[in-house]
Design a protein around this nucleic acid. Structure first.
Lengths: 343, 343
DNA sequence: GTGAAAGCGCTAACAG
DNA sequence: CTGTTAGCGCTTTCAC
């Protein structure tokens, strides 16, 4: 006992103190309480003090639902990402939220799970909350989704990819360009044979396709393409390398993985097979995650500035929200190949 | 040009179609539209068809703000986690959201950043959205935070830790117990010297303290405690081992890390120093992340079923939301030491 | 500096 | 099966 825990208790009364109640206690009308909260300078110091005391005494927490309904501003930003457990998207959201919160915006976050069909339903669900802005991952959306977004009339930013025809604005980089750049890098290293290991992710597949096409076009051998069934993981990377080597006739060369995690799995599998890296196997990851540089051998990979991506997305939205015109509506953030020792 | 991109366009009219407008088109009153949406069986097939046609024609998206205000149900769950980029919390939220979404609940997510002060402000901000339930990480909250939560009168579940005095309900495990169990494990292995490497995290510190106390109490040497300044990372793990070895007089034995990531860093640093694992250095992680089993040597660690944690938290909340009494308000999920080869 | 009145777009009774 | 009447708790506008 003791404490106010009361574990297991039933739910008490809901919906608490109102501005009207606070006003009654402070001896003012409800509007004055509203003003005290939204713009204290419009209220005399004396009444302000009484109102604040009443707020403290009652534990008043304003009802943002009512406020949003009346003002037509929800201070809510809706965000849709493929996965929360993928560090790439988590870091992006983290940076985005950190930028938006100081401006009074809260983030309503949902996972789409790489599933195009569910995105539409989620967008509808989110729009029903009347967000002030929307953040989406990727630039491929159903026509109906686009229609709803346009009809909602709110700023929209699509991240992690770029397109000439965003719903509103976009910030990211060209995945096809990235794939080609890696192919050129590998060819320049003198690689003639290549394999790709790709997790289930639309953008990863675009990188892979561009890589394979360019690699072959520039004189490399046809690329061995291994697709992992689920999300990226160490184990999937190990299994994929084993498959490439044993079942797909890949005899060594460069391996381009769709994520650093996959690449780490490849590194581990290579060590288990006594293959030298980068001698027998040159390994290239994607994402430049924290651990990439600390691996042994250090992982050569493609860096995308995820935190900057989140910040830029936030800035674009804030520009629109404050009726400023964003410097650019289509922002190519680019990428960078980080050469370390694995390739 | 082309497409409906119109990148850079100004914001069009906000606040869209209302139920009243839909009703006007369908030749019914606004309430009938409401009924058609909430319980189609209460509307005749003929009018239902007309209403649906009108909804499609107008692109009507219901205003959940107004609905929540009127019904006093927001279908919103508020969740507060220390960090989104920490896989431990991300996985928990993922499982939790997956369980809640089919029941019509959306998740408003915020990061507290291990900062107790900001938690209070965030709780207030979240409560202003009138959530139907609240999920919090950890069981240590300011008195004011507890007061607000209690006053809100909504179900609350605290996760990732347990206490006898939850605000409402909790599900997790005892971090002190976990620390002691690891100490016992290490002592049983014949370890007499130990070091801890701990990231900045209140619960990690509780595990460490319990570990150190138990290790010494059972005859082990005083424990070398290294605290990392920031969040866990591979690099931090490497640096911490170096510090223990070079500056803190740790001469080998068992190393208990507050996360698998840190442990992986230790493994890498050990290899770089030509220390054998588990011979010179026995390494124990925490979390049993995906990669733990795939490392070489495979990492001995403490497993906590994060997905189950999320599911159980959701079930507890759903019980309350449906006026059922949860089977238990305090749920000890336990943990398990997974013995692999690193210790 | 303060208040009264009128909604925001919906749900919840209560009639018919 | 359908409509009418009241709000939900705020912000906005216009008075004083």
């Amino acid at each position: 006992m003791g404490g106010n825990g009361e574990a297991g208790k039933r739910r008490p009364v809901r919906g608490g103190v109102t501005m009207a109640a606070v006003g009654r206690i402070a001896g003012v009308s409800q509007v004055t309480v509203s003003r005290a909260l939204s713009d204290p300078s419009k209220v005399s110091p004396a009444t302000l003090a009484r109102i604040r005391a009443a707020i403290r005494a009652t534990g008043f927490v304003p009802n943002a639902l009512a406020g949003a309904l009346a003002s037509r501003r929800s201070n809510l930003i809706t965000a849709l990402v493929p996965s929360l457990t993928n560090i790439v998207y988590a870091a992006l959201v983290q940076a985005f939220a950190a930028e938006m919160r100081p401006h009074g915006y809260e983030i309503l976050l949902s996972e789409t799970g790489h599933d195009a069909a569910s995105e539409e339903a989620l967008i509808a669900a989110h729009l029903s909350r009347r967000p002030d802005a929307v953040l989406l991952t990727g630039t491929r959306h159903s026509p109906e989704a686009r229609r709803m977004l346009l009809a909602a009339g709110v700023p929209v930013v699509e991240v992690w990819d770029i397109t000439d025809t965003p719903v509103d604005m976009c910030v990211g980089f060209s995945h096809a360009e990235a794939g080609r750049a890696v192919a050129d890098f590998a060819r320049a290293e003198g690689q003639t044979r290549a394999a790709t290991i790709t997790a289930q992710d639309a953008r990863a597949h675009r990188r892979k396709q561009a890589f394979a096409a360019r690699f072959a076009q520039t004189g490399g051998a046809p690329v061995t393409e291994v697709n992992c069934p689920g999300p990226a993981s160490l184990a999937a990377g190990r299994a994929a390398l084993a498959e490439a080597l044993e079942a797909r006739g890949f005899a060594g060369g460069v391996v381009f993985c769709s994520s650093d995690l996959l690449a780490q799995g490849v590194l581990i599998e290579a060590r288990a097979r006594r293959l030298s890296v980068p001698g027998d196997l040159a390994v290239i990851g994607f994402g430049d995650q924290d651990f990439a540089a600390a691996l042994d051998p250090a992982l050569t990979t493609v860096r995308v500035d995820r935190a900057r991506l989140g910040r830029v997305a936030a800035e674009m939205l804030l520009d629109r929200l404050n009726d400023r015109t964003p410097a650019r509506a289509i922002f190519d953030l680019g990428f960078e190949i980080i050469r370390r020792t694995s390739a």
